[in-house]
Amino acid sequence: MKERFFNTLYFFILLILSVLFIFPVFVVVINSLKFKFSIATAPFVLPNADTFSGIENYTTGIETTGFLSALGWSLFITVFSVGVIIVFTSMTAWYITRVKSLFNSLLYYALVFSMIVPFQMVMFTMSKVANVLRLDNPLGIILIYLGFGAGLSVFMFSGFIKTVPRTIEEAATIDGCNTFQVFWLVVFPVLKPTAITVAILNTMWIWNDYLLPYLVIGKDYKTIPIAVQYLKGGYGSVDMGALMAMLVLSIIPVVVFYLLCQKYIIKGVASGAVKG
C-alpha cells in the first residue's frame, strides 16, 4: 500500500520533469512558426493569426545558411569518419592487444592519454598541420577524425578484446585462415556489440562537433553546427525566426537517429561507461 502510494507519487514527479525536459524544444518549435519580431518579446506564447509566419523562417533560414549542403556535409563526414574509425581502430586494438611489444604498449598509453587532453591544446597546431598536408577538405578531415577518435575507440575495443579467448583465433589459423581473415571472419563478429557502442559514441561526437570542422574546413565547407553558428555570428543583426527554424531542422535528424537506434544508444552509453 505504502509502496503503491510512493510509486504513484514518483510517477507524477517524473511526468512533471519530462514536461520540463521537453519544454525547451517545444518552445523552439512554436517560435520557428512565428514572425521574427514576435519571438524575443513573447517566446512562450503560441503563434496566433497575427504572428503565424507559416514556413517563411524555414525558407529564409535554409537559403542564408545553405542548410541543405550543410546537412549533406554533416552526413558525409559523420558516416565515413565513423566507418573508418570502426574499421581501423578495431584492427589496431586487436593487433596491439595480441602482439606484445614496447612500441605497442607505448602506443596504447599514448592513445589513452590523448583522451584527457583538451582540444585547445592542439587546435592551433593541428589546423596548421592539416592545412600544410592538404587535409583541409571533407576527405582529409576523415583522417583527422580517425586520429582524434582513435583514443576512446582503441581503448574500448581493447577492453573487450582482452576478455576474448585466443583459442578461436588459433583454431581459425590452423584451419588455414591468414591473419586478415582471422580478424574479419572470426574476431570482428565477436566485437560487434562493442563496435555498435563505439559507432554511437563517435556519431554523437562528430555530428555535433563544431570547433574542429570550423577550424579545418570551415572556410569552404559548412557542417550543421557551423551553419547554425554562421547565422548568429557573421550576419549582423540576427534573424531570430530563421535561427529558430534552423535549430528545429538541426534537431530533427538527431531525434530520428535517436528513435531508430534508441536501444543501442542507451545500451552503448551504459556499457561504454562500465569499461571506462
Binding site: 581501423f88 587532453v117 592542439v122 598536408l133 577524425y145 586520429g147
Partner: peptide, 16 residues
C-alpha cells in the same frame, strides 16, 4: 592493422 590508425594519430594528435 596499425599503420593507418598510427599515421592519423600522429598527424591529428602527436605532432600537434
Amino acid at each position: 592493422f596499425v599503420a593507418p590508425c598510427l599515421v592519423a594519430f600522429l598527424i591529428a594528435f602527436v605532432i600537434p
